[in-house]
Design a protein around this nucleic acid. Structure first.
Length: 425
RNA sequence: GGAGAGAUGGCCGAGUUGGCUGAAGGCGCUCGCCUGCUAAGUGAGUGUGGGGCGAAAGCUCUACCGAGGGUUCGAAUCCCUCUCUCUCCGCCA
């Protein structure tokens, strides 16, 4: 959410921004509505002032045994008027908030103006793309051949877009989670957290999933609970409605959670394999920092995520999302895309974003530079470090051998009692 | 699921016959003084959101004592609903 005062006085800028992002939003009534809000507020507060004053007066007069009946009947009318004006306010606030809740964040000045993913500039590439002397298979064939991925039984248990991993397929997933958590806690200084996997609607609103993206979420019937689409939601909400102290910033959390997404609107897309699932595992990095540091903190968080791929020796590239591809809450986003030789494409494996104060304003996450000074909104940054299932996919496809076996990356072998290759049973 | 108790400022904790209590007192914290270090002592300050005025510092009004309603001229204090916490029982990993 953007600042009401900022929007009020920068409507032209906002409109240009919306056009760059490809949004169609009419904000023409905004200023007059806000003016109305303030005039209502002013008259309301004047009436309250009178009521407070006279009520005190009544107390004193009563003590002295004076007659207060005329004042009371007068105040009765004032109170009635206050109530009537108060009743108007929620509606006005709602009308003002509705556009405010659906205006996306303002892109960082470094973000390229563009239409869609084709306009995303590639920032850097890492690793050498392997030359295969055979036709590399997609991971679903590798996995089924090795008996570690079973999509048909997953469909029987839960339906499409679910997966069942067995034997080393399950172990590898678990080991990858540990591997990522170990690197981020030991080498990068993140604090590990294990949050609730279901959250209430207040939390979902604070991080921006609600009200705009309800159809992407799984809701628990009969409860005010949703399955989290990413650990970003519970972890960012750790500090909702808090005032952090300057010297504890930046706060850095790493969190493994399963993620649940309805993938509404993606029918027919990536229907095969582990790429687009209703449930998947992710290790998420979340930072809270002060405004002047957030650009740099995004860079370092992205580098922290990249280090996982480097350790696993998986080739990737980093792209910077253009205005048309940028997510709703983000001011700037780097997507890390891993190379998948079985499909001959780069596939997003991490999305690292600086939300500036956009999430913090909704979630009411502030900090104070020193005792007695005012509060400021913190900046929030997060990114995957990494999507676990897609990392497994990348390993299967990049490390596959002509005989159908898959070599285990060196860095993972200590986690697997030295196992160096997954072979057919 | 059943029975009971509670929710006040960064923390602890008063306030429950409704009215100078945005909130006593204590702790913590910040700034100053004093004591040649440390400890102790001492003075002052120390919530957030919103509105108005102001270039700013600031001044002023308003709201907030778990959340939302209600009663009343007036509510932290009374009534209702909800949420959360704690204790006991039941159940369970």
């Amino acid at each position: 959410m953007l600042d009401l005062k900022f929007v009020r006085s920068n409507l032209d800028l906002i409109n240009d921004m919306l056009k760059d992002r490809g949004y169609d939003l009419d904000l023409s009534g905004f200023q007059s509505l806000d003016k109305k809000r303030r005039s209502i507020l002013t008259s309301l507060e004047e009436l309250r002032y009178r009521r407070n004053k006279v009520s005190d007066q009544i107390a004193v007069m009563k003590k002295n045994g004076e007659d207060v009946s005329s004042l009371i009947s007068e105040m009765k009318a004032v109170s009635k008027e206050i109530k009537e004006i108060e009743a108007e306010l929620p509606d006005i606030m709602d009308q003002l908030n509705r556009p405010l809740m659906v205006i996306p964040n303002i892109p960082h000045e470094s973000v390229v103006v563009g239409k869609d993913a084709d306009d995303n500039p590639v920032i850097r590439r890492w690793g050498k793309i392997r030359d295969f002397d055979f036709d590399p298979l997609p991971h679903w064939e590798i996995g089924e051949n090795l008996n570690i991925l079973d999509f048909s039984r997953a469909a029987k248990i839960a339906g499409s877009r679910f997966s069942l991993q067995t034997g080393l397929g399950a172990t590898l997933e678990r080991v990858l989670i540990n591997f990522m958590l170990d690197i981020h806690t030991n080498n990068h200084g993140y604090t590990e957290t294990l949050p609730p996997f279901l959250v209430n609607s207040v939390s979902m609103t604070a991080t921006g999933q609600l009200p705009k993206f309800r159809e992407d979420l799984f809701k628990v019937d009969g409860w005010d609970l949703f399955l989290i689409p990413t650990a970003e939601v519970p972890v960012t909400n750790i500090h909702r409605d808090e005032i952090l102290s300057f010297n504890e910033l930046p706060i850095k959390y790493v969190s493994y959670t399963p993620c649940f997404r309805s993938e509404a609107g993606s029918y027919g897309k990536d229907t095969r394999g582990l790429i687009r699932q209703h449930q998947f595992n992710k290790v998420e990095l979340v930072k809270f920092c002060c405004p002047e540091d957030s650009d740099q903190e995004l860079e370092s968080l992205t580098a922290d995520a990249e280090e996982i791929l480097q350790s696993l020796e998986l080739p990737y590239r980093v792209v910077s999302l253009c205005t048309g591809d940028l997510g709703f809450s983000a001011a700037k986003t780097y997507d890390i895309e891993v190379w998948l030789p079985g499909q001959q494409l780069f596939r997003e494996i991490s999305s690292c974003s600086n939300f500036t104060d956009f999430q913090a304003r909704r979630a009411n996450i502030r900090f104070r530079r020193k005792k007695g000074s005012g509060t400021e909104l913190a900046h929030t940054i997060n990114g995957s470090g990494l999507a676990v299932g897609r990392t497994l996919v990348a390993i299967l496809e990049n490390y596959q051998q002509p005989d159908g076996s898959v070599v285990i990356p060196e860095a993972l072998r200590p986690y697997l009692n030295g196992l160096s290759v997954i072979k057919r049973d």
